Amino acid sequence: MKNCIYILILGIFIYSCSTTKNRKMDVATTDIASDTIRIANDSLEYEIIIIEPGFNAWLITQRPRGFYSETFLETRNRIYVTEYNQRVMQPQRFDPNLYLQQINYDPVIHYGYEVNYLLYNYFLYFEQRYRQRFIVTRGRRF
């Protein structure tokens, strides 16, 4: 009986060791896939795609949805987008690898709270990650 218990424990140990070969242990691939955020509205014909490794994890640590008013977010996004687009147009002055293409943000269109919230937080993330400073946060420290 004692030998049966030892054999059973040894069998479980061998089985548990052999099954780790098939497990995916690469966390980076799942993080990249989960850090793609897509927001689309077909009636307004707009789409926002944020592909930034680490953005989702960073977003969880920020102030929750509903903390800012929609007017506040729209005002800040207008300022951020204007500054960002100016930097896109000046590749000799600003890193063209950071400022790839312009953002088409029309202040007349009502994008909704979710779009404005994510866009605003993306700009905060962009500033922090790439050590950039926009007009809105000149007094802010990293």
Rank of each mutant, 00 (worst) to 15 (best):
Y120E: 13
V108F: 11
G112F: 01
R133M: 08
E114C: 08
D106W: 09
Y105S: 12
N116F: 02
Y117W: 12
Y113D: 02
N116T: 12
I103S: 10
Y113R: 00
L124I: 08
L124E: 06
E114L: 15
V115Q: 07
Y130T: 00
I103D: 03
E114F: 10
Y113I: 03
N97V: 04
Q102A: 15
Y111C: 03
L124H: 05
F126G: 02
Q101A: 07
Q102M: 13
P107F: 03
F126R: 06
R93F: 05
Y111R: 04
R131I: 13
P107G: 10
Y111E: 01
Y122Q: 08
D95V: 04
Q128V: 05
L118H: 14
Y120K: 09
Q132C: 09
Y99N: 09
N116E: 10
R133C: 11
N104K: 06
Y113A: 02
R129P: 07
V108Y: 04
D106T: 01
D95S: 13
F94Q: 03
Y120M: 00
L118N: 13
Q128K: 03
Y120N: 15
F123E: 12
F123W: 08
V108C: 03
Y125T: 10
Y99Q: 02
V115A: 14
R129D: 10
Y111T: 04
D95H: 08
I109L: 14
D95G: 11
Y125E: 05
G112E: 01
F123N: 08
R93A: 14
I109M: 14
N97S: 03
I103W: 07
N104V: 12
F126K: 05
G112Y: 02
R133H: 01
L118Y: 15
Y130R: 11
G112A: 10
F94R: 07
I109N: 06
L119E: 08
R93V: 15
F134R: 06
Y111I: 03
Y122D: 01
R93K: 15
G112L: 02
L118T: 00
N104T: 14
Y130P: 00
I109H: 09
F123C: 04
V115N: 08
Y99T: 06
F94K: 12
E127N: 01
D95A: 12
P96S: 07
I109Y: 11
L119S: 03
P107W: 02
L98T: 04
F134N: 15
Y99V: 06
R131M: 11
H110E: 13
I103G: 01
R93S: 14
Y120G: 03
L118W: 02
R131P: 00
P107Y: 07
N116Q: 13
D106H: 14
R93E: 05
Y99E: 07
E127K: 00
N104G: 12
R129Y: 13
Y105A: 09
P96N: 01
Y125D: 12
E114Q: 09
V115Y: 14
Y117K: 10
F94Y: 15
I103H: 05
E114N: 14
Q132K: 15
V115I: 13
Y105K: 09
Y125S: 12
F134W: 09
Q101I: 02
L100R: 13
Y99G: 03
Q101R: 04
N104A: 10
H110S: 12
L119G: 00
Y111V: 01
Q128E: 13
D95L: 01
Y125P: 11
F94N: 08
P96E: 13
N104D: 15
P107L: 07
L124F: 00
R131Q: 14
Y99R: 05
L124N: 11
Y130D: 13
L118M: 05
Q132D: 05
F123Q: 05
E114V: 13
N121D: 12
